[in-house]
Design a protein around this nucleic acid. Structure first.
Length: 877
RNA sequence: GGGAGCAUAGCUCAGCUGGUUCAGAGCAUCUGCCUUACAAGCAGAGGGUCACAGGUUCGAAUCCUGUUGCUCCCA
């Protein structure tokens, strides 16, 4: 049977994924083992896999698979959130294509269509995760709008309302005129944009001497009709004459007062501020303070309403253009300047956010923020990397109340019922609401009550996620929640640290008395190699599924991790996936080599050195990798595995034990190699699950039954290493590298066997390395000599000298020049070491071990220098 | 405007409590090899005033101050 020269991942991946599913390796039920739990950050049900997910879920899968292989009961809970704004937009579009307008539908009918959409198109992303190899317990897949989960949301709402932490009020909120809903502060993305600053003349109602008008600078001329006042700084001497006056709003000639407030910055614009309480947060607060009327001139969709008096029905941006023309014609526009400033955009619809006064539901944050902050500050919840603690604290200390109502249908409807007189009651069902309402007015019937039309913010579902996925609300004492909660690690993007992570901690404390997880690993943002964030609009994001097709899931996973330093953004480049694929291929070919070996049991065992050395090296790497995982330094962990496999195992160990072409290998070497290979597969598995599982089942590794899979194999225990052997083999490797280097510089064929003479002064047991040196260096004979060899290329490894006789091939001048250079370096080096050692302050202040070390450096350098001097003399003869 | 972080090889990054793991890794580059596991490979090599300027110290990539440049968060 011939085995392909390259690893054909496409034939392997689906096969093993199905096999794992079939044998229920991802499934977790509580048992006597220690649990290791991760809840997935639920992606939008509308979402498709992007590079951020790819990174995120690769990390989670690596952690989960590793925990499984360390004997933990690993449970990774998948699911999606209902993403009210995004989903509702998709459904509205679907309806539009069928010629149906949302406005013509009842809430009930609309929701029917929404569910239809969800069943048909939703959750694609979960299928995509399977391609990546995600070992989620799919039986536990949850969706934030399932009945139980929604019930938990409603109960939570009622609970917090009764506690006085949820209230209803008119506040300035962020309005999305495209999504036609309020959005939270966190869903507003601020971007720097080029704008224009318009200078507009407001005429004084009564001229004051020469002064007939005042000048106002604004970026939003279309809102002048909503002005309630003009504000100046009381200390501004330019405008003292205006105190107590009134001015007229241009075009509509409404009279408004000039008010005084130190809030106004004297050196920005003209020093006069138009106050528009309905359309600006700061103006609103100013208006409250000065008792100004609120004139809202905008409809929900961003068009002007009749309060504007002019340009009624025009969109706000069209109105802005038109009003500048009108102002110009009226002679009220003085000038227009270019201006750069921050504008808020809706995260979901990218519409410019409109500050708007609105009656909304809010959740108080202060009380819940304090304990949630404490968890992080006292280390019960660790943020990795810890630089986020500062940011977290800052946010938690300045947290504002959370606007939780959304003017949508897709989501959990707010459990509040209005009475005809405008009062309301909060209750789980209409019946309960009626009972309560009757205590206000006994004559009321169910028909008199009207439920609040709005739904709660999707985050108001997802903050319960770590509890609700285990049914912790309905059955607060069930086996799952008791076993899995609190979970272990949460892997997510730093951009949702506040509106998701922080709130989960709040909910965890409030409803379970415990934080929902122990560690929060915050991944970086995936950027392209120019450092730009990957986004749909830039089109700079590769489709992860295409990458998987091109490089294999294992290759992409490795590529992802290679470029993701802990906590830093990553500059993704496809070449990393290529590197991952090449690595998979390397392993595949190592396998092909070993697979092809024939064993001759009568042969003597000759590779004890190589076997003992690799065993030590493997355990050394195992300990190193363990440590890196403990610090969540996954990119360094994969690199450690990469070097162990590629350099130590393939380039050194296999080359050492590899029999000559078409020769058999002895049984001991073979068995050791197979055992090492098997351990390597285990180590690789969390990173490269498909390839490792594929090879695991080859008969090379013995009989496997259906349950005997790499995915559930147990990682080897870390054993003691032989540090002396490890150090000596480093010397051995240097010798071989020097021999190869000599060949290279002297242009000798690797096929030509050479002689080697060793003049040794160290204690390294080169004698025992003779077979390895001969094999890897293609050395025909090794002599241990006391004298230097004439007419030979030479090199040094520490203070041991090596000679390769090369009859006519020695350029004495070049040798001398090389030695001179080494000598110069050593002389300089010695000088600095000697200077240190003769410095009294150094000798008095430095730690003894440091001084000892300097002495050793001194002795080594002197010994080496002496040899070089001798060699120079020797060559000069 | 307020706060945080970063700056080390062409690129992406390590470098922990200052001192031979102190200038390192992988990729890329260059040279030579299609050597019967792998050219998606093998063997070698080159490449950095550790952003800049001061300071502390016997000793600084590492600690302190300032400057410049970039990123993020909040207003």
């Amino acid at each position: 049977m011939s085995i392909s020269k390259t690893y054909q991942f496409s034939e392997v991946e689906d096969k093993w994924y199905s096999y794992w599913l079939e044998h229920k390796f991802f499934k977790s039920v509580p048992d006597e083992r220690e649990p290791y739990t991760i809840v997935i950050p639920p992606p939008n049900v509308t979402g498709v896999l992007h590079m951020g997910h790819m990174l995120n879920n690769t990390i989670q899968d690596v952690l989960i698979r590793r925990a499984r292989m360390k004997g933990k009961n690993a449970c990774w809970v998948p699911g999606t959130d209902h993403a009210s704004i995004a989903t509702e937009a998709k459904v509205v579009n679907m309806l539009k294509e069928r010629g149906i307008a949302k406005a013509d539908l009842s809430r009930e009918d609309f929701l029917k269509y929404a569910w239809e959409w969800k069943e048909k198109y939703g959750g694609i992303i979960l299928e995509q995760l399977k391609k990546l190899g995600a070992s989620c317990d799919w039986d536990r897949t949850r969706f934030t709008m399932e009945e139980d989960m929604s019930e938990a949301v409603i109960d939570t709402f009622i609970h917090l309302y009764k506690k006085g932490w949820i209230y209803r009020g008119v506040r300035m909120i962020n309005w999305d005129p495209r999504g036609l809903t309020a959005v939270s502060d966190e869903e507003v993305i601020r971007k720097e944009v080029n704008q224009k600053l318009y200078y507009i003349k407001y005429t004084l109602t009564e001229a004051e001497g020469d002064a007939t008008h005042i000048m106002i600078a604004t970026t939003r001329p279309e809102t002048i009709m909503a002005d309630s006042a003009v504000c100046i700084n009381p200390n501004d001497e330019r405008y003292t004459h205006l105190h107590g006056k009134t001015v007229k709003v241009p075009l509509i000639n409404r009279e408004i007062p000039v008010i005084l407030d130190e809030y106004v910055t004297m050196d920005f614009g003209t020093g006069c501020l138009k106050v528009t309480p309905a359309h600006d947060l700061n103006d609103y607060e100013l208006g409250q303070k000065h008792n100004l009327p609120v004139i809202d001139i905008l409809n929900d969709d961003g068009t002007l309403n009749d309060k504007a008096e002019i340009l009624i029905g025009e969109d706000r941006f069209t109105a802005r253009k038109k009003i500048t023309v009108l102002l110009e014609e009226a002679g009220a526009l003085e000038k227009v300047e270019e201006y750069r400033s921050q504008v808020g955009f809706s995260e979901r619809t990218d519409a410019v956010i409109e500050p708007k006064l609105s009656m909304q539901w809010f959740c108080k944050m202060k009380e819940m923020a304090q304990p949630a902050l404490d968890y992080v500050l006292n280390g019960e919840v660790k943020l990795i990397p810890d630089k986020f603690i500062n940011t977290y604290r800052h946010w938690m200390e300045n947290v504002r109340d959370w606007n939780i109502s959304r003017q949508l249908w897709w989501g959990q409807q707010i459990p509040a019922w209005y009475l005809p007189n405008g009062q309301f009651v909060v209750a789980k069902t209409l019946e309960e609401a009626l009972t309560e309402a009757k205590s206000i007015d006994a004559t009321l019937t169910a028909a008199d009550l009207r439920q609040d039309e709005d739904v709660v913010d999707t985050w108001f579902s997802s903050w319960l996620w770590p509890i609700s996925v285990f049914d912790g609300f309905k059955n607060p004492d069930n086996a799952d929640i008791n076993y899995y909660y609190p979970t272990n690690d949460l892997v997510t993007a730093p951009e949702i640290l506040f509106f998701w992570v922080a709130r989960m901690i709040m909910a965890g404390h409030e409803f379970k008395g415990k934080a929902p997880f122990k560690n929060v690993y915050l991944t970086g943002i995936v950027r392209d190699k120019l450092g730009r964030k990957m986004s749909k609009s830039l089109g700079n994001s590769p489709d992860p599924i295409d990458l998987i097709k091109k490089y294999g899931a294992d290759g992409v996973r490795v590529g992802m991790l290679l470029c993701s330093p802990a906590g830093n953004d990553l500059m993704f480049d496809e070449s990393y996936c290529e590197q991952g694929r090449n690595f998979a291929n390397k392993i595949w070919n190592a396998f092909r080599l070993v697979k092809g070996w024939e064993v001759d049991a009568t042969l003597p065992a000759t590779n004890a050195i190589a076997i003992n050395w690799f065993n030590s090296r493997f355990n050394e790497a195992l300990a190193e990798i363990e440590d890196l995982f403990a610090q969540y330094r996954l990119s360094e962990a994969i690199m450690a595995v990469y070097k162990l496999v590629w350099d130590d195992f393939c380039a050194w160990f296999l080359e050492m034990v590899k029999p000559a072409y078409q020769h058999p290998i002895d049984a001991e070497s073979f068995n050791a190699t197979v055992k090492f290979f098997e351990n390597i597969l285990k180590l690789l598995h969390p990173f490269m699950p498909f390839l490792s599982e594929e090879l695991w089942h080859d008969e090379l590794f013995g009989e496997r039954n259906a349950q005997d899979c790499c995915i559930v194999a147990q990682l080897p225990e870390i054993e003691q290493t032989n540090t002396q052997l490890l150090a000596d083999v480093e010397k051995l490797k240097q010798v071989i590298t020097e021999i190869r280097n000599t060949r290279n510089t002297k242009q000798l064929s690797p096929k030509e066997a050479l002689e080697l003479h060793v003049k040794q002064s160290s204690a390294v047991d080169y004698q025992s390395f003779v077979p390895v040196i001969s094999k890897l260096g293609n050395i025909s004979s090794i002599n241990f000599a006391d004298d230097k060899i004439a007419g030979a290329a030479s090199f040094m490894v520490s203070t041991d000298e090596f000679f390769i006789p090369l009859a006519n091939n020695i350029d004495a001048d070049a040798e001398i020049a090389r030695l001179q250079k080494d000598k110069e370096y050593l002389v300089g080096f010695l000088k600095s070491v000697n200077a240190k050692l003769s410095n009294e302050k150094f000798v008095n202040n430095a730690k003894p071990e440091i001084i000892e070390n300097e002495r050793k450096k001194q002795a080594d350098a002197e010994a080496k220098l002496q040899i070089i001097e001798e060699n120079l003399k020797f060559l000069a003869i």
